[in-house]
Design a protein around this nucleic acid. Sequence first.
DNA 1: CTGAAAGCGCTTACAG
DNA 2: CTGAAAGCGCTTACAG
Lengths: 366, 366
Amino acid sequence: MTVTLADVAERAQVSPATVSRVLNGNYPVAEATRERVLRAVAELDYVVNGPASALAAATSDLVGILVNDIADPFFGIMAGAAQAHLNTPPAGADSSSSPLAPVRTNAERLAVVCNTGGSPARELTYLTLLQRQRAAAVILTGGAIEDAEHSAAVAAKLAKLAAGGTRIVLCGRPALPSASAEGAAVSATLSFDNRSGARRLTEHLLALGHRRIGYVAGPAERTTTRHRLEGHREALAAAGVEDDPALTLHGSFDRATGLARAAQLLALAPDLTAVIAANDTIALGVCAAARERGLRIPDDLSVAGFDDLPSATDTVPALTTVRLPLYEAGARAGVLATGAVEPGRVETVPAELVVRGSTGGVPVPR
Amino acid sequence: MTVTLADVAERAQVSPATVSRVLNGNYPVAEATRERVLRAVAELDYVVNGPASALAAATSDLVGILVNDIADPFFGIMAGAAQAHLNTPPAGADSSSSPLAPVRTNAERLAVVCNTGGSPARELTYLTLLQRQRAAAVILTGGAIEDAEHSAAVAAKLAKLAAGGTRIVLCGRPALPSASAEGAAVSATLSFDNRSGARRLTEHLLALGHRRIGYVAGPAERTTTRHRLEGHREALAAAGVEDDPALTLHGSFDRATGLARAAQLLALAPDLTAVIAANDTIALGVCAAARERGLRIPDDLSVAGFDDLPSATDTVPALTTVRLPLYEAGARAGVLATGAVEPGRVETVPAELVVRGSTGGVPVPR
DNA sequence: CTGAAAGCGCTTACAG
DNA sequence: CTGAAAGCGCTTACAG
């Protein structure tokens, strides 16, 4: 019923092998033959059978992109950028004029975004599914879960994936120990400089005179949460400011957390003059909590976020935050997932302080 | 090198056929045999070869979700919901206790999100790639491009996909003519009631006394754009209010469009008392433009959006908008993509007016 | 309940 | 430059 390669071969009066060669462009084929085959392909509206091709060639063109939350633009921006750069020709190559250029409509890599929803189990499940599909590459985005057992399971899975020829790229996730077998399996790591960014943000607040600073952190078990919190604490320690544990509250990386935790913090410690959110989305909730309490930003309360998502400029005033070049990082991850890199490469993505209107001086006591 | 089903069979002292049966749980197997096989699977850390399995069984468990912009939560919310409901057991089934329950870690469907970026060519490319993978289902989300040639190409492709056994679900996209072969190929359509929602929104503004209403529309060639605009115009016509073509400007569904177009509108027609944005993201840009011009919302200018994204409540004041149950719609699409439905089903997703602080009475002339 | 065997639709040495 | 043939790793009637 479905048209197969054999049908094309018959119509073009050549062997299946020749059709395969024309389609893949990996062997020389006489121009006249080539044209005959292409005409037959067009006439029969032939579409390669992906599984059969993947089985025979022992490779596939599937690239999996794992994200923690697909509804969060933090991940959407990275995933979209990665996907857009998966088929970027290596610089200098001019495939359009090469006589061996593959002609498949399907020469393109299929970038697929897999949403773990932050669940360790689903992360592993997706990795297995991608392993099963013999994916060409896997890009893991965002922070990792810090649970010894889970980390070991992921590392082991990545090593197996790599052993099977799948390229692994970490984007926004700390590098695995490079000495370990698992670390060596990772093709490339783009690690975000969360710690430095967070430190600079807190230094900014300290410079403005703030001493009582609330902190709404993300899930306790994520690397992103820990690194940002550590940067914050480093800055406090360096300035000799007490780090009151009661001023740090954990939650999810979402608006609801910001709203709830900020409300708690403000009720608990009315002397707070600033609240730092672990990311911009949480910061939106913090701003909402401040509004509910009738606090003006930044006159009564300074608020800051992290990431510099597009929404950071939609609050009034706009959010002071730490900019992470998410699009650029995602794009780079896409290139690394396909290009030829010597494994084990680690690049640090810089985090830049962006001061806007939501932070200001310490309110004068009334 | 990689462990195959034959290796498992050898270790478990059974035939490959038996291993396959245990793994798929589609044939009765003696309990003792079953256990032996499972032990061998675990010991060898066996992972099914997806392509081989798909080739032999002539099916795959890939489900493609096409989105126009993965960085936009409008799509992220739907895609995430769909993905989360792809493996929902049909109501009433209790698979956990069935002795025939498949034991593959990989029984799950692999939901993959494909980002077209709004490009017609990429939409077609992805459909071909999914066809090539013999996808179990394809969910197309968001508005369609209204270009006769492209529409025909998509419809033809969908018909072929369906002929190959792929289930097709449209979510947030108008139904194809049900009489046509292509329409019949679509398993289910969830069409958003954009027109009514838009009409109700404009009626709300008219009831507040607004007569000069600007409109920042989406891309001219998308169904979503057209339907929302038609609803707006219906309301104007019904109220006998002139529809000044100069007050409608087109752009993309993004913040930058809202900012630029609103600035143009306000410069062009300073007598505007309200601006409607085709979606919430555009509305954020409209609000920014109003701020830049020193206009207070809603005292000087009423602003409204569409979709009721989470960000709609982060503006100050919160955005009046039209709520689309995106999560619910995506979840339903996920269920329809896997469950057994008689093809051709069409469901309308209601759009509900949500009045918040960004719209108010007409400003008193000063 | 289990096995032997054919077949799914490609790709790729191996010859020529 | 082209073809015949083996093989990729599964699944599934067909027998028993």
